[in-house]
Design a protein around this nucleic acid. Structure first.
Length: 305
DNA sequence: GGAATAACCTGGATGC
DNA sequence: TGCATCCAGGTTATTC
């Protein structure tokens, strides 16, 4: 499932291919891929046509490509617009040659003309249709710092503005997290999944970081002493960085990079998806519980309440 | 206002 | 073989 490392791998692959490319054509095959777009499919197609992509940026699980002036916002708009992408559970952004086969679940096709790489296309493929694309206005960041990875500008799409910075962001405020957790009575896993508190962490990496920090997922956030929060934050960063190096986590065909290649981090998982298997640390069985309408994996022996 | 829950969605896996 | 059911989970609207 696309969490921070998977989205960052996609951004890294996309950035050199789309930066300075001009959008030569857009085809929307399924308007459900535009649930975050404030307009219909034809509006999306018309407003993107002829625009130049300035770069590729990311905050948490949101990816966006700032666009050159010329859209509905007009050249007079100081901030401009961006093409925003969220991969949901199964979304993929695939770089393909112009004549390549469409494949299944193709929702949107964006044709590009790049000054160096020539003609290509970006296909938005999404089996479960939880992902989406949108054209959105850029607004100043609340803290005045660059919006996220790959962005030198303090401008963020309006629909991403409420998303917290991710823990790999240079502008992430550790002390703010400690203060927020001290006021939260919810289970720590629930808080880790709250993208307005800390972004980029999903079910897989929440389970992995909690296992590494030896914290039970249902521990009240406010019950964690500062040193435990700092240890957890360090483990979140460690697991995200390791997954990033290994190209992300691929369980099935639901996550691949822009070239359609799978990541290797699934081989490094200690807790997630290992219900009944021995804990790599103590040998006891990993437990799988239902939590928040999804699965939660932890070691009852290492991670006591 | 904070916290918890349901709904959205598709296709593979499983059980009968 | 065919059908029904379960399961995966990020985000957001709704409810308490």
């Amino acid at each position: 499932m696309p969490e921070l490392p998977e989205v960052e791998v996609v951004r890294l692959g996309l950035s050199p291919a789309v930066t300075d490319a001009v959008i030569s054509g857009v085809e929307v095959f399924d308007s459900r891929a535009l649930t975050r777009h404030d307009g219909d499919a034809s509006d999306f197609e018309v407003r993107l046509g002829g625009r130049r992509i300035v770069g590729a940026a990311r905050r948490g699980k949101f990816l966006w490509m700032p666009l050159s002036p010329g859209g509905a916002a007009g050249a007079g708009d100081p901030a401009g617009e961006a093409l925003v992408a969220h991969l949901g559970m199964s979304g993929q952004l695939l770089l393909r040659a112009p004549g390549a086969e469409d494949g299944r679940h193709l929702r949107v096709r964006v044709g590009l003309e790049h000054p160096e790489h020539g003609e290509m296309r970006v296909d938005f493929v999404d089996q479960r249709t939880f992902g989406s694309l949108a054209i959105d206005a850029l607004v100043p960041t609340a803290d005045g710092a660059p919006a996220g990875w790959g962005s030198g500008e303090a401008l963020v799409p309006s629909q991403v503005a409420h998303i917290a910075r991710d823990p790999l962001d240079a502008a992430f405020d550790d002390r703010r997290l400690v203060n927020v957790l001290a006021r939260k009575n919810s289970a720590i896993k629930r808080v880790l999944l709250d993208q307005t508190v800390i972004s980029g962490v999903g079910n897989i990496y929440a389970d992995e970081a909690l296992w590494a920090a030896r914290i039970h997922p249902e521990t009240a956030a406010s019950a964690l002493p500062t040193r435990s929060v700092n240890r957890l934050l360090a483990e979140v960063r460690a697991v995200l960085n390791k997954a990033l190096v290994e190209g992300g986590t691929s369980f099935d065909a639901q996550y691949v990079n822009v070239n359609g290649e799978a990541g290797y981090f699934a081989h490094s998982l200690n807790a997630y998806g290992r219900g009944g298997a021995p804990c790599p640390r103590c040998g006891g069985p990993i437990k799988r519980d239902s939590f928040m309408n999804r699965s939660s994996h932890f070691c009852p022996r290492c991670q006591r309440r």
